[in-house]
């Protein structure tokens, strides 16, 4: 589903940072891959490179067989197939919850208003927030907003879902409700790449864990391997700090 080969990305401003160094990875259809690593290790940059919110300097990325790096590729088509959930939700504050979920369906997918609404209501029910369809985002708690954001991404019927620390901005008591939605998605066979610090989630849901440090992939493996027998010292150090 996702194929990443030798991707490099260097930020020059405000100062030179090698954010991605020779990254290679692959994600099979239906697989849930969790990316972990210390702050500034390039996890977000990696995720954002997948739908070209960040353009890598070199390397190759394919999503569902489409060459993302090719300038001739219609990146908007690719993005429509790749759902993304952000740490800060980024809901559209001038639109109601329902409009948040229908907007891109109508504008990008060219669905009728009615069809978009039906899809939206079904998804809002799925994330357990149907009764808030008519309110504006700032009247929702963080956990509710993030669930709306997930519904908004799902409404495009994406082939892949990317999550960038979806629970990091949430109060502890709201983390569970968002993780539950993500677990349901994983169980239903959605292909997911999740950047998170929730090790419980990684252990329970991940098919594979990728550990990044200093812009490079240090170690990849199943959760059992990862949490019980990590090979690299840096992995061990990181796990000892975080667990």
């Amino acid at each position: 589903m996702i194929e990443v080969r030798n991707v490099y990305k260097t930020f020059l401003l405000p100062y030179k940072v090698r954010a991605l160094v020779d990254i290679s990875a692959s994600v099979e259809p239906g697989e849930v891959v969790v990316v972990i690593g210390p702050s500034g290790s390039g996890k977000s940059t990696f995720l954002r490179a997948l739908n070209r919110l960040e353009t890598p300097d070199s390397g190759h990325i394919w999503i569902d067989g489409i060459d993302v790096m090719n300038p001739k590729t219609d990146i908007n088509k690719v993005r429509a197939e790749v759902g993304m959930v952000f740490q800060n939700f980024n809901l559209f504050p001038h639109k109601t919850v329902l409009e948040n979920v229908t907007l891109a369906q109508v504008v990008v997918r060219k669905r009728s208003k009615k069809e978009a609404k039906n899809t939206a209501m079904a998804l809002l029910e799925k994330v357990g927030i149907k009764e808030k369809a008519q309110v504006y985002p700032d009247q929702l708690s963080g956990g509710q907003q993030q669930r709306v954001a997930i519904a908004r991404a799902l409404a495009m019927n994406p082939k892949v879902m990317l999550f960038d620390e979806p629970t990091s901005a949430l109060d502890p008591e709201m983390i569970g409700e968002v993780l539950d939605v993500m677990k349901t998605l994983a169980r239903e066979g959605m292909t997911m790449v999740v950047v998170t610090h929730e090790m419980g989630f990684a252990r329970e849901v991940a098919d594979r864990v990728i550990f990044m440090d200093d812009g490079a992939v240090v170690e990849t493996g199943t959760p059992e391997h990862f949490f019980k027998n990590p090979i690299h010292d840096r992995t061990k150090l990181f796990l000892s700090q975080i667990l």
């Binding site: 980024n90 001038h94 504008v107």
Partner: peptide
């Protein structure tokens, strides 16, 4: 905030669509 552009573009909206529906109204 840049997040608004990123959210709309990540849904597959073009620059113009994102401007018209998300950024300019705000």
């Amino acid at each position: 905030s840049r997040g608004q552009t990123e959210a709309s573009r990540s849904l597959g909206m073009t620059y113009v669509q994102s401007m018209v529906h998300v950024i300019l109204p705000q």
